[in-house]
Amino acid sequence: MAELKLLGVSLSPFSRRVEWALKIKGVEYEFVEEELQNKSPLLLESNPIHKKIPVLIHNGKPICESMIIVEYIDETFEGPFILPKDPYDRAIARFWAKFFDEKCMPVMGKALFGSGEESDKAKEELGELIKILENELKDKKFFVGDKFGFADMAGNLMAYWMAIVEEASGNVFVTSEKFPIFCAWRDEYANCSPIKEHFPPREAILAHFKARFQAAAAASASK
């Protein structure tokens, strides 16, 4: 049997992308919880360039970057396809995965964790990005038809973590009134059978981010 070890953080959306891919494929693996403030020698050795999680170690060989790992899992192990078999659909799935990581994620970070004018501007920009996503999702459950797949996996931060962070901050930006199609996609996501049993505990994420926002508020008040 192949030796598989995943270096990650249990509450991380990036680690969960890889875990979901492994679960979908039905592959057994060992999960190694990392402390990001005290990274293990194995992590630093396995990902010397970025020094980040997740890292999948397959028979002693490390693979880095979450969506690259997902593609590797899809190509290496038998089981349901994560990327579509059709070349055009596969290209579309990769496009939207890149859109999430390169366009949405940086803006979302500023919108949720920024302050003042920077946050307000980012929220406007994020709203425009969500409208683009809504246009693509129109008349579809997921990004490539009616099946959860690669692009949706890349969007997990917006599908699951984002609403929890909004609740923790007390500043809810995305509502079904403003973005009905996007919120319908999030609802489909929450009930998607391949992954719904493997979401990280909502309360744990909420507590983590509440503590983070409280610490930031205390630091700002003490200045």
Rank of each mutant, 00 (worst) to 15 (best):
I92L: 05
I92S: 02
I92K: 12
I92W: 10
A93G: 05
R94C: 07
R94M: 08
R94Q: 14
F95H: 10
F95T: 07
F95E: 06
W96Y: 12
W96A: 05
A97G: 12
A97P: 05
A97H: 03
K98V: 09
K98Y: 13
K98F: 11
F99I: 03
F99Y: 15
F100D: 10
F100K: 07
D101G: 12
E102C: 09
M105N: 13
M105Y: 15
P106T: 06
P106I: 08
P106F: 11
V107K: 02
M108N: 02
A111S: 11
A111K: 07
L112F: 12
F113C: 06
F113S: 13
F113H: 14
G114M: 11
G114A: 14
G114T: 15
S115D: 10
S115Q: 10
S115L: 12
S115M: 12
E117I: 00
E117S: 03
E118I: 14
E118M: 13
S119N: 09
D120H: 09
K121I: 07
A122Q: 04
A122L: 05
A122D: 10
E124D: 12
E124R: 08
E125L: 03
E125I: 03
E125Q: 08
E125K: 05
L126A: 08
L126G: 01
G127R: 02
G127C: 05
E128S: 09
L129N: 15
K131A: 05
K131M: 06
I132V: 13
I132S: 12
I132L: 05
L133N: 08
L133C: 10
L133G: 01
E134K: 00
N135G: 12
N135L: 11
E136R: 12
E136S: 05
E136I: 02
E136F: 10
L137F: 06
L137D: 03
